[in-house]
Design a protein around this nucleic acid. Structure first.
Length: 271
DNA sequence: CCATGTACCTGAAGGC
DNA sequence: TGCCTTCAGGTACATG
């Protein structure tokens, strides 16, 4: 499930291949994949740059923008096929050079939006988790204005954009915070620790080319390696790397949530 | 306003 | 083998 690091890896890889290319046209094979929110046409427009906000990848065209969200199983593959059969190909962005950017998506949740106004498109998306403007002070302010479980808070993209199920579980584990801990009850020291660890976890996942559990591929079709370094996610019943107790799995907001009951106590001195 | 529930989708995995 | 159920979780939208 692509989160911020996976999207960032794809963005970095695509930059060298896609920037300055000119779009010939976009072929759509599953009608819901392409969402046209703009009166113009992307055809014959040059791609000036590639940006990112949270889990959205943003292609900056001459006049407007193509925004891709991979959701659960989306893949952006440059100039080649992937391991999926051809019938998972939902759209192709064809370039005048003959290069192409193929959008595969087994579950059809992913989207390519064509928009002319970024501001109105991103009204419900908060600050990017790796942006310079996302500071410890900003994090504390967000937390103090909210009183819900910390995992629910981190999942909600309108506060902080880019975190998903895997990296939230990892960040809370190394910070020693129970996923149901109320935002208002996390003390100053723990807040700072969590803030630092979120940035650390995301940056290290980028360095490892992302987490490939099932569908995620880089734009070259490659695998990430970060799945080998996960501390809690997917480790239900296995021994905690810190204390040896069994990792537990519960559901929060209908998401599988992994934690160590000893290192992340719901109430206790460690918090 | 907020919290919760469900739709969107398909493939993999497990039970019997 | 094979059929059925459950699970995976990001986001939009509906409901209470």
């Amino acid at each position: 499930m692509p989160e911020l690091p996976e999207v960032e890896v794809i963005r970095n890889e695509l930059k060298s291949n896609i920037i300055n290319q000119e779009i010939k046209n976009i072929e759509v094979y599953w009608h819901k994949t392409f969402v046209n929110l703009c009166q113009e046409s992307p055809n014959n427009q040059q791609i000036f740059d590639i940006d990112r906000l949270g889990k959205y990848i943003i292609f900056i065209l001459e006049k407007d923008f193509l925004i891709v969200h991979l959701r659960m199983t989306g893949q952006l593959i440059f100039n080649k096929n992937n391991n999926y059969s051809k019938n998972h190909l939902r759209a192709s962005i064809l370039m005048h050079s003959g290069d192409n950017l193929n959008f595969y998506d087994a579950r059809k949740f992913g989207r390519i939006y064509y928009v002319d106004d970024l501001k109105s498109f991103f009204t419900k998306v908060g600050i990017d988790a790796l942006s310079q403007e996302f500071t410890n002070k900003y994090f504390e302010e967000l937390l103090s204005n909210k009183n819900c479980g910390i995992k629910s808070f981190l999942l909600d993209q309108k506060y902080i954009a880019g975190l998903g199920n895997i990296y939230i579980d990892e960040s809370l584990f190394i910070s020693g915070i129970h996923p149901k801990k109320l935002t208002s009850e996390i003390n100053h020291k723990k807040t700072q620790l969590l803030f630092t660890n979120i940035k650390k976890i995301l940056n290290s996942a980028i360095a490892n080319m992302g987490t490939t559990i099932s569908d995620y591929r880089t734009s070259g079709g490659g695998f990430g390696t970060n799945q080998n370094l996960l501390k809690v996610y997917g480790r239900e019943g296995n021994a905690c790397f810190k204390c040896g107790s069994g990792i537990k799995k519960i559901r929060i907001n209908s998401r599988g949530t992994h934690y160590c009951p000893v290192c992340q106590p719901e109430n206790g001195v460690l918090q």
